[in-house]
Write a protein that binds this DNA or RNA. Sequence first.
DNA 1: CCATATATATGCATTTTGCATATATCACGC
DNA 2: GCGTGATATATGCAAAATGCATATATATGG
Lengths: 152, 152
Amino acid sequence: MHWSDRLYRSLIAVADLVNRLDIDSRLLSAAGVKLDRALFPLLARVAMSPGINVAEMSNLVGRDHSTVSRQVVKLEKLGLIVRTPDPVDSRARRLHLSDQGSAIMAKVKAIRRQWMEGHFQDWSEKDRDDLVDLLQEMIGKDWQTGIPPART
Amino acid sequence: MHWSDRLYRSLIAVADLVNRLDIDSRLLSAAGVKLDRALFPLLARVAMSPGINVAEMSNLVGRDHSTVSRQVVKLEKLGLIVRTPDPVDSRARRLHLSDQGSAIMAKVKAIRRQWMEGHFQDWSEKDRDDLVDLLQEMIGKDWQTGIPPART
DNA sequence: CCATATATATGCATTTTGCATATATCACGC
DNA sequence: GCGTGATATATGCAAAATGCATATATATGG
C-alpha cells in the first residue's frame, strides 16, 4: 500500500477516536461534565486556543459560522466561557474559558493524561517523543495548500 | 508542555483536518462528487473497511446505530454502496462500495495522494515513513482501555 | 426450547445545521 | 474624510441529522 494511503487510514482512525472521545459519556461524566454533544468539542478548542473568535473557530471545525455563533452563546450562558471584546477589532469577540470552564477542562485533562500514559506505557520514550514531534511537524503545515480554490 | 498535551493538540488538529476534508466541497467537486455532508464520511469508511456492518460503523464513528442505519440506506439508494447478506449471520448485512462508489473513491484517492505528496515533498523519506509507522502503531492499540466505566 | 443478546429498521420529538439576511466595523483606495 | 467591498457576528427559518424507544429477526448459550 502507498504510504499516503496508510497515512490517510491512520488520520481517519485518529479523527474517529477524537470524535468519540469528544462525546464520550464515560470520560465526561468522570470529569463531572454534562454537556450537549455538540458543545464539548467547541469547549475543548477554546481551551486549546484561548482568544480564538467565532470565525476562526468555524474555519477550524468546518461548520458554518452561524452554527458556531449559536453554540458559543450556549457555552457562555452555561458559564463555561467568556467573550471579551477584541482590543483591536471591535467587530470580534475573543473567547476564553471561564473559571468554571477551566476547572472542568482541568479535570478532563487529568483524566486524559492518565489514560494516555496507560496507552503508551509500553512504548519507548524515544518512539513516543518522535511521534509527537513528527505529528506536530505535520499539522503545523498549511494543509489547505494544493486544494483547488474557494469553498461553495 | 507535557508530551500528552502536545500529542492531544496534534490529535485534535488531525481530527479537525479530517472533518474538514470529509466535507470539503472543493475536494468533492474536484472528484465530481455531490453528496450530503453526513454521507461522505460513511462512504469513506466503507471504502476503508469493506464488509463493515452498521453496528461496527456506528461504534467506529460514534453515532447511534439508528442514525447510521438510515444514512447507509441513503448511500445504497444513491447507488454508492451495496449491502450483501452476511454469510455467517443472517441478521447482519455487509457493506461494500458499488462500482459507482468505487469510481468516486478512486478519484478522491488520486486527488488526496497528489495533495499529500505536495504536503510532504520537503520531508525526508525516513521522517515520513517513521511518522506513518508510529501512527499506525498508535492507532492499532485499543484506545478504549483505561477509560473509567460508565457511571450514569 | 427458552431467555438473553445482537443486528437492523423505523416512528417521533428534539437538536443541529446551513443559508439568507441584517448590522456593525474594518481596510483601503480616492 | 468618504465611499466600497470585505469581515465578524447574530438571527429567522426550513431542512437535515440525531438519539431514544421500540419492533422484528436472528443468534447464542444454557
